[in-house]
Design a binder for these strands. Sequence first.
DNA 1: CTGAAAGCGCTAACAT
DNA 2: ATGTTAGCGCTTTCAG
Lengths: 343, 343
Amino acid sequence: MSDVARAAGVSAMTVSNVLTGRRRVSPATRSRVEQAATHLGYELNLTARHLRAGRTDTVALVVPHFDHPYFGELAARLAGLLAAEDRHLVVEQTGASREAELAAVARARARWQLYDGVVLSAVGMTAADLDAMHTSVPLVLLGEQEMSARYAHVRMDNVGGARLATAHLLAAGARRIAVVGGAEPSAEAGMMPARTLGWSLAHDDAGVQAAPELIVRAPADLTSGRDAVRRIVREGLDLDAVLAVTDSLAVGVLAGLAEAGRRVPDDVQVVGFDNLASSEFTVPALSTVDPGHEWLATETLRLLEAAIARGPAAAADGAADVPQHVTAPARLVLRGTTRDHRD
Amino acid sequence: MSDVARAAGVSAMTVSNVLTGRRRVSPATRSRVEQAATHLGYELNLTARHLRAGRTDTVALVVPHFDHPYFGELAARLAGLLAAEDRHLVVEQTGASREAELAAVARARARWQLYDGVVLSAVGMTAADLDAMHTSVPLVLLGEQEMSARYAHVRMDNVGGARLATAHLLAAGARRIAVVGGAEPSAEAGMMPARTLGWSLAHDDAGVQAAPELIVRAPADLTSGRDAVRRIVREGLDLDAVLAVTDSLAVGVLAGLAEAGRRVPDDVQVVGFDNLASSEFTVPALSTVDPGHEWLATETLRLLEAAIARGPAAAADGAADVPQHVTAPARLVLRGTTRDHRD
DNA sequence: CTGAAAGCGCTAACAT
DNA sequence: ATGTTAGCGCTTTCAG
């Protein structure tokens, strides 16, 4: 920068002023500076500006794995909202497992200071892990960990959404509903247990006995969805519907059912959860639970703004002005993998 | 940091030494420092370190849009490779259109200095745009722009891949092959023209007349794939196969064909291009061109390393040691949307 | 093994 | 409208 200043015959301060536009600079000087800058191929050093300013106008979204469409969609939404105020979004990855997440978070404490705020989507961390994590960086948590009082938290209505979906299947006549990606039902233990709880509650609501052997454990990916169906078929389990706890699983389930020659929705109905953009385009089109994407993104940023406003200092202590915990409203999207109600 | 130093009764320098491990520190001092740091909740300021060091150990992948599975997969691969050497990957988005890309690139010149190197995946920029873009940041280009001599460039074999796929369709008996996402055939004008050229050349190879009315223009997304089929059906166009220039389009095409009651592959065969992870799970499973993902990621980083080693200074001038341009080898992956050869 | 000084490149605050 | 000074928080270099 001083090179440019020298070339233009002014001080570094004036160059800075031209670049930021913060102070009035006479047109003549301005153009001399601009010429000199172009001529020298000068590029502002943001690292230095950030150090000086103590802020970076950048928010990070930290996700378990880059390669998951859900986070891509979320990132795009957040980036859109941030761009409107001239701020940037960068996406970083932790690495899915609890261990990887903890390691990443440990390393990240320092790293996150590079950002004005962080949206952390943690899948493997427990509430205890979160409490052990101290960071002064304004943070919003996304996901299904138990609430940590120290950080703002945005979550989906997993129980409600799964309950809605299962209720629809039951109303459409299904009586043997497998929950692929299921787990021990619980509102507290993560996404899979919560969605399984919704499945279970819907059965109670309808006065139908839920069959525990239809809880099919599976990681939330495409391959596992197909494998789950193969397993079900191999074991000769009777079923007339599937609640897949994620759309990725549902896509795998559809592939598995096709492979097994089961017709969807005539023989087996399927409902997913997430309403990914691609889910409208499966054959048949996937019925699914929409977790309230827009709402989630907007609310996440609102809470992050609040955390940033509270200041990095306050982020760590349970200030009077407590971080909020909100739940997005889920909504059922009916397409071609379910039959109509019979009522 | 000076706070920690004071609390531990040492100098800031010693704190730094404890943190970096670069110099020997006596165990006693080390533990005093560590205690003080934990006690004060001290977090190293990376911005300052980066300013001082002139490097950030971070590489950025800049993509048109977060919400595209192809880039998610690429990012995951690059992150994996980088993590092995304790370096970080962040993903940023430009915004798909040429205008957005140019604006982003203009703003980005300064921004990219935050990184040791940048992998830029540009879809809308022309060679002229690239030449107009001066940056001292080590850069590798991904995509189908004409080669810019100034930057290393990794591309897919679009022409070869599409030619391979089309040849297979022709050999399997198809004679009316629509190219969805097609364009004026050309090796120079971007991904769509290149893949359309492959389609055209395969016809020449087989001595079959390619029907120009079967070039169906469409942006590369799911909806457009379905819309393209709807248009084809509405216009009563005769066809027995589709080359979709991306897997996303192909998925939309499959949805459109299902909607129109055309059986795949009996009535219409379909081949995509990209081999996304999800493409194995369509019904029927999508036959597609694999652009050599692994190879692409590895090669990209190799070239980026070279650019970084050449140094930021050299990035701008056409040094003796010229940046390289490489093309990944494409491979046909046959699954359920194509019929077998009849030869 | 530890410390003091200096500076990375920028900009707020205070001159002029 | 422009310049001077000082300092953001770290680490390299040179001294002890």
